[in-house]
Amino acid sequence: MDSPTVLCRVLGPIVVEIDGVPAELGGPRSRRALSALSAADGAVVPDEYLIEQIWGDVPPGNVTSALRGIIWRLRAALGPQVGPRYLRRGAGGYALVIPGPLIDHRQLASRVAGAMRHLDDGHPSWAATDLAAAVALWRGEPWEELGPAPELIGIRAHLAELHDVAVEELQAARLALDDPAHAGPETARAIAALAEAVVATPYRERRWELLALALYRSGRQTEALAALRGIHERLIDDIGIEPRLSLRTLEHRILRQDPDLLLPAPVRAARQHNDR
């Protein structure tokens, strides 16, 4: 019998898919336990920490037996081929040892890294495929069941940044798929996505830069300039900083109708993170 295909999804409410079908993980306590185990990235999670995550400050009387019961139910939910294999007892705790490629936050990082290489190598269609897959993985706050969890602040911020980069560079790849002088359907898709993206995260300058470029290539110079001036004013009024150099340069180029803006260019030429 072939081993089942497993995917642990933690970018949002926790889900474990077995051969594409979500396992019945049970109630909030079981889900918090599995979330805490998955966040440990294969390391043994001490019983005491699991108990705290599951019951907070009010554990049941026979908490050791209660914890074993939750682990037993999780193993049963994952099935006889997956539960005992991946959910193991270690020294003083339990570990979820699902390999990295079978966890969605690892897939997110891998997809984005691969797409950046494709962009650098001049393969925007391959990059768009990887980036669209990366964006689709995101369903909400990673390890949602664990609440604020100070120990997860760093990794959550890192994953959110990867998601933001994927959203932006997907639109950059789409722009590269159209003839810059004759904006087509990919540019229209990029404009629609970027219009939503700048509302969702208004201080990320990369998405404003791409939106302005896409609008200009679509013959909407006035709207492109309005977008750039809008983020300029927002950054100064709200944060007290000037837009980065690439944004200011793009505004000047649009004003003088630089013909090079309608020529194919490396997808990431404008992606400068330290150009202030």
Score class of each variant (00 low, 15 high):
residue 159 L to P: 01
residue 163 H to M: 10
residue 256 R to F: 10
residue 188 A to P: 09
residue 22 P to M: 13
residue 125 S to P: 06
residue 133 A to E: 15
residue 193 A to P: 06
residue 180 P to T: 08
residue 156 R to A: 05
residue 32 R to T: 09
residue 197 A to S: 15
residue 189 R to D: 08
residue 201 T to D: 14
residue 64 T to R: 15
residue 255 L to S: 13
residue 261 L to S: 05
residue 66 A to C: 11
residue 60 P to M: 12
residue 168 E to G: 12
residue 204 R to C: 10
residue 176 A to C: 11
residue 66 A to W: 10
residue 251 E to V: 00
residue 86 Y to D: 01
residue 193 A to E: 10
residue 59 P to Y: 03
residue 182 H to I: 10
residue 63 V to S: 14
residue 125 S to V: 12
residue 181 A to R: 14
residue 102 L to F: 13
residue 43 A to S: 15
residue 230 G to Y: 04
residue 267 V to W: 01
residue 272 Q to G: 02
residue 4 P to G: 05
residue 239 I to H: 04
residue 97 V to M: 11
residue 110 S to D: 12
residue 172 A to E: 00
residue 121 D to I: 11
residue 104 D to Y: 03
residue 74 L to V: 05
residue 29 R to P: 01
residue 121 D to Y: 11
residue 206 R to S: 02
residue 46 P to R: 08
residue 31 R to I: 05
residue 40 A to N: 07
residue 121 D to Q: 14
residue 33 A to W: 04
residue 112 V to R: 00
residue 214 A to W: 02
residue 41 D to A: 10
residue 232 H to T: 13
residue 30 S to K: 12
residue 101 P to E: 12
residue 126 W to P: 06
residue 214 A to V: 04
residue 8 C to V: 11
residue 207 R to C: 02
residue 172 A to I: 00
residue 22 P to T: 11
residue 99 P to N: 03
residue 276 R to P: 09
residue 92 G to I: 05
residue 36 A to T: 13
residue 144 E to I: 07
residue 231 I to Q: 04
residue 20 G to K: 01
residue 205 E to V: 03
residue 182 H to Y: 14
residue 159 L to T: 05
residue 245 L to A: 15
residue 269 A to Y: 10
residue 42 G to W: 07
residue 71 I to R: 13
residue 85 R to S: 06
residue 269 A to V: 14
residue 83 G to V: 01
residue 10 V to N: 02
residue 117 R to H: 06
residue 89 R to E: 15
residue 164 D to R: 15
residue 272 Q to N: 07
residue 195 A to V: 12
residue 57 D to S: 12
residue 40 A to W: 06
residue 158 H to S: 08
residue 195 A to Y: 09
residue 193 A to Y: 04
residue 133 A to R: 13
residue 178 D to K: 00
residue 180 P to F: 08
residue 265 A to G: 08
residue 121 D to P: 07
residue 238 D to S: 14
residue 162 L to W: 03
residue 43 A to F: 10
residue 31 R to N: 02
residue 180 P to M: 08
residue 173 A to P: 00
residue 196 E to N: 15
